[in-house]
Computed example of a mutant assay.
Amino acid sequence: MNGIHTTDLNLIRVFDALMEERSVTRAGERLGLSQSAVSHALAKLRLLLSDELFVRGPDGMHPTPRAMELADPLRSALAQISTALSAPRFDPATSDMTFVVATSDYYIGALFPKVMARIRREAPRIRLWLRMFNDINLVEELDRGTLHLVVGAFGRIPGRFRRETLAPVEMVWIMRRDHPAAGSPLTLETLGHWPHVDILLSGRATPEAPGMQDQEGLERSFVTSNPTHLEALLREAGLTRQVGATVPLILAVPPLVAASDMVAMVPREVAETHRDSYGLAIFDSPYARPPTQIDMLSHNSHGAHPAVLWLRRILDEVGRA
C-alpha cells in the first residue's frame, strides 16, 4: 500500500475478510457490508497495490501471489490494532507491573506488610514502590500518573481525585513507663505540664502549621496530633502546650519518648507494638477525639485502570481485615 497516511484502514478489514471467505458476498455478510461496498473496496485495494489481489474462478475468489504475501502481515496488524483499542486487561497472576504508592512510615510498617503478603499469593511478579509522602507534590504526581495511590489523612480533595475510606486509626498518648506522670490518669493538666513530641509529615510545613494545609486544592494532614484543637483546650484551662521535639517520622517517636520526659500522640498499633521494647505507658485521650479517618486517593482517570482497581481492592480488603 502507498502508506498509512493515505490508506483507509477499513480496506485492510475487507482484504482480510476476502482472504478468509474467498467470496465478495460472504465477506460482506461477515463485515456487515453490502456486496457493492465490498466490490468498491476491492477496486480501491487493486488501485492502491497495482495488483488484482483476487481473481474470480468457478469455486470463488483466488488470491494472487501478492495477496498471499500480504495476508499474514495484515492479519497480524489488525490483531494488534484490535488489542490496542480494546479495554485494558490486567492479570495479576502474570503481570510484572510496578505500583507506586505514597504514604507515611506508619502505613509502610503497619499496612503494607499485610498487603505484600496478599500480593505474594495472588501476583508474585508485582512490585511495590512505597514512597514517603512527606515532600512529594501529591497533586502533581497523581495528575501525571507517576503515583497510582496515596494513603493518608485528607480534608478537601480536588474533584478529579477519587476518595475511598480505609479503616480509621485510633490515636493514643504515650510516655515512658517510669515517667513521673505515668502512675496517674492522663489529664489536660498533664498534657499542659510535660513537653510533647510533634510529628510533622512534611519538610515544607512549619512546626506552627495547622493540622491541615492546602496543597493545590488538596488538604493534607501535616501534624498528626491536631495541635490547634489541643492548644485551644489547654488555653481554656489556663495551660499552654510545650513542644520538646518535632520529627518527620511516626516510628521515630517511641524511642524519643522512652529516653525523655516528653509525651506524644501516636496510632494505637504503634504504641502497642513498641510498648514492651521501649517500656511505654499508653493512655486514652483525656478529651473527646474521634479516630483519624484514613483515605486512599487515586486519580479518576488513572485509578480506573484494571490494574489500579485491583490494587485498590487489595488495600481496602486488607485495611478492613
Rank of each mutant, 00 (worst) to 15 (best):
I250L: 15
F154D: 07
T64F: 01
A167P: 06
W173M: 02
A67R: 00
L31P: 06
M61G: 06
S260L: 10
D91N: 12
A110T: 11
Y278A: 14
V100C: 08
E164D: 15
M296S: 05
L186M: 05
A182P: 06
L128Q: 13
T83A: 15
A41T: 03
I282S: 04
V151L: 14
S298A: 12
R275M: 13
T146Y: 09
A37S: 08
S95D: 09
V24N: 05
M68H: 12
R46F: 08
R275A: 14
R131D: 02
K114R: 15
R75H: 08
L70P: 03
L186K: 02
M132R: 15
V115F: 12
R125M: 10
L18I: 05
P291G: 13
E20L: 13
T146N: 09
I119P: 13
Q215Y: 06
L230V: 12
W310C: 07
A232S: 15
A67T: 00
R144Q: 11
R121E: 15
T224R: 02
E69I: 00
D316A: 12
A205C: 03
E317K: 13
L138S: 06
P185Y: 09
A167K: 11
P158Q: 08
H274T: 15
R30C: 05
E231T: 01
T273P: 02
T7L: 12
V308H: 02
A41E: 01
R312S: 09
H40G: 06
I157Q: 02
V101G: 06
D59T: 08
L249V: 01
N10K: 13
R118M: 14
L309D: 07
H305S: 06
G155S: 15
R160V: 14
A321R: 12
M296H: 03
M116G: 07
N2E: 14
G32Y: 01
L42M: 04
G145E: 12
P88E: 02
T64G: 10
I136N: 03
M296R: 05
S36T: 11
E29Q: 05
S277D: 12
P168Q: 11
Q293K: 14
L45Y: 03
L201E: 03
L48R: 11
P290M: 07
L315P: 00
V101T: 10
L256R: 15
L315C: 09
L78C: 06
Y107Q: 10
A71S: 08
L49Q: 04
V100N: 11
P124N: 03
R56D: 03
D72Q: 06
G155A: 14
P124V: 15
T224V: 11
F112T: 10
G3N: 13
R163Q: 10
L142D: 08
R312K: 08
L230F: 15
R26W: 07
L230R: 13
W310H: 10
S23V: 04
M19Q: 10
A71T: 09
A264F: 14
A71I: 05
R204C: 03
T246S: 07
L191N: 01
A37P: 01
S34L: 03
D198G: 06
